[in-house]
C-alpha cells in the first residue's frame, strides 16, 4: 500500500513537473508560424514527390502561405486540391493544366540499328556514361528503363520493342523520369497535345538513315505543311512549338519517316495566335 502511494506520488509529480516544464518551454520557445501552413498541408496529397519544385509538401505549403508558390502549384492534386488550397488562402483558382510525360524516341529494337554489345549494368545512366549502350544512334533511347524504375506512380512500362510507354492516366508530371533519362528524351507536355515529333537526333538525314528507320531526317516537309507555323528546324531536327500546335495532323500525314506521331483520342484545339 505504501509502495503504491509512493509510486503514484513520485511518478505523478515527475510527470507534472515535465508537463509544466514543457508548457513553459513551449511558451518561451514559441516560434510564430502561419496557421495556414498546417491547413494547406493537410489538404495536400502528402506524397512529398517534389513535383511542385519544393522539397516536399510542407515546404510547398510554406511557399503558398508566404506567397512564393501559386495556389495551384501542386500538379499531383490537380484542380480539387488547388480549389481547397485557394479557399484557405481566400483566392480563386484555376486548376493547373494537366501535363503528362512524352517519350521522344521511336527507335526500339526493331527500328534502331545495333552497334556491338553492352554488358554493363542495366541502367541508362551508366550505359550513357560509359560506352553509350548498344544502339548506333547516340541520341536515342537506350532502352534499359531507368525512367520506368524512377516512376513512383506506375505510369510507365517498357514495351516488347524496348521503349518506355507512358500510361497517361497515371502520369502526374512529377518529372522524375525526365531527370532519370540521360538523353533528355522525355519531356512534360500539356495533356491535350496529341502531335509529337518523336526524335531527338541532331544527325543529318544521311546518317540518321544509317542508324534508324524512324528518325527525323530534316526534310522539312512538316515545316512547310504546318498551317500555324508550329514546327521549325533547329540543328537538323524538326521541333514543335506546343503553344502553336492545334493537333491538325497535317505533318503526321507528310512525314516520310513516320517520326511524327498522332495520339488517338485527342481533340482538335483552338488556339489564339500570339505575336
Amino acid at each position: 500500500m505504501n509502495t503504491t502511494i509512493i509510486s503514484l506520488v513520485s511518478m505523478g509529480s515527475m510527470a507534472a513537473l515535465f508537463a509544466l516544464g514543457l508548457a513553459v518551454a513551449s511558451k518561451k520557445f514559441a516560434v510564430e508560424t502561419d496557421p495556414r501552413v498546417e491547413e494547406i498541408e493537410s489538404v495536400l496529397p502528402g506524397v512529398n514527390c517534389g513535383a511542385c519544385g519544393f522539397a516536399g509538401c510542407n515546404n510547398f505549403a510554406e511557399g503558398v502561405a508566404s506567397g512564393k508558390a501559386p495556389v495551384n502549384g501542386c500538379p499531383v492534386g490537380g484542380l480539387s486540391v488547388a480549389k481547397m488550397v485557394a479557399s484557405i488562402m481566400g483566392v480563386e483558382a484555376d486548376g493547373p493544366k494537366r501535363r503528362v510525360a512524352q517519350v521522344l524516341c521511336k527507335g526500339g529494337h526493331a527500328e534502331a540499328k545495333q552497334r556491338g554489345g553492352y554488358d554493363g549494368p542495366k541502367d541508362c545512366r551508366i550505359a550513357h556514361a560509359t560506352q553509350g549502350g548498344d544502339k548506333a544512334c547516340s541520341y536515342g533511347c537506350l532502352g534499359y528503363g531507368s525512367c520506368v524504375a524512377s516512376c513512383e506512380f506506375n505510369a510507365m512500362y517498357m514495351d516488347e520493342n524496348g521503349l518506355p510507354v507512358v500510361i497517361e492516366e497515371n502520369c502526374t508530371a512529377c518529372g522524375k523520369c525526365v531527370d532519370a533519362c540521360p538523353r533528355d528524351i522525355i519531356v512534360l507536355v500539356d495533356e491535350e497535345q496529341g502531335v509529337h515529333i518523336r526524335c531527338r537526333s541532331l544527325l543529318t538525314g544521311r546518317f540518321v538513315r544509317q542508324v534508324c528507320s524512324v528518325g527525323c531526317i530534316a526534310c522539312q516537309r512538316c515545316v512547310k505543311v504546318c498551317p500555324t507555323g508550329a514546327i521549325y528546324m533547329e540543328d537538323n531536327l524538326a521541333r514543335i512549338d506546343y503553344d502553336k500546335c492545334i493537333n491538325c495532323r497535317e505533318c503526321v500525314a507528310v512525314c516520310p519517316m513516320n517520326t511524327i506521331d498522332w495520339q488517338e483520342g485527342k481533340a482538335l484545339l483552338e488556339k489564339v495566335a500570339v505575336g
Binding site: 513520485s10 515527475m14 510527470a15 515535465f18 516544464g21 518551454a25 516560434v31
Partner: peptide, 23 residues
C-alpha cells in the same frame, strides 16, 4: 518503475530539445 520513468524523461527531453532548437 525504471522503464516507465525513463521513457517519460526521454520523451520529455526530446520534446524540450526540439523546441529549444526550433527557437
Amino acid at each position: 518503475l525504471q522503464n516507465m520513468s525513463f521513457i517519460l524523461v526521454i520523451a520529455s527531453m526530446v520534446q524540450l530539445v526540439e523546441m529549444f532548437l526550433h527557437k
